[in-house]
């Protein structure tokens, strides 16, 4: 199975590529005034609005660095009943993919205290790689606000 790797601070995280639609350069977003914490705005993706979530801001409390390796991962975010919506994730060092057996990912043992979007971990020579579950990235309340806001905007 193929995973897309990115970094939060020094640590490596992966997303299942099945959910990834495209990796975009870090384009300038339109700021959504009053948007909840972690949401840095929305981008115009071929005519449709896509909300943008900064993973560094969510997890580390600081925005992603504006460098070339910071990219937007466009994922298909499930919104129930087989429907998906596009969601942009700003992440640092989106420059690698990783091929691993899904069985390599094992529970890290401290899941109770972790944010809900973090999943099991896999080990390699340089440390641990954590799997991020895209479904859990937005708390349900935030998801409602975000997609409703975009749907009603002109």
């Amino acid at each position: 199975m193929l995973f897309l790797m990115f970094r939060l601070g020094r640590d490596r995280y992966v997303l299942d590529v099945e959910q990834v639609e495209e990796v975009l350069p870090f384009v300038t977003p339109t700021v959504l005034a009053g948007a909840p914490h972690g949401v840095v705005g929305a981008i115009n993706y071929h005519g449709g609005p896509v909300p943008l979530l900064d993973l560094s801001l969510l997890a580390l409390g600081r925005p992603s660095a504006a460098v070339l390796s910071t990219r937007i991962i466009l994922i298909r975010y499930p919104v129930g009943e087989g429907e998906t919506r596009r969601l942009g994730l700003v992440a640092e060092r989106v420059i690698e993919t990783l091929s691993r057996d899904p069985a390599d990912f094992v529970p890290s043992g401290v899941e109770a205290g972790m944010p809900p979007y973090l999943g099991p971990v896999a080990a390699d020579a340089r440390g641990l790689i954590q799997l991020v579950r895209a479904e859990a990235l937005l708390p349900p309340a935030l998801r409602d606000i975000l997609f409703r806001q975009l749907a009603t905007s002109p």
Partner: peptide, 28 residues
């Protein structure tokens, strides 16, 4: 080589790509 990707982004670069993705998908 990877370090080359840690160079800062210019505002032009971001604006240019924003305009690119705002347009219609090429040939679609």
């Amino acid at each position: 080589a990877r370090g080359l990707l840690d160079r800062p982004l210019s505002a032009d670069y971001r604006a240019e790509w924003a305009a690119h993705f705002a347009g219609e998908k090429a040939g679609e």
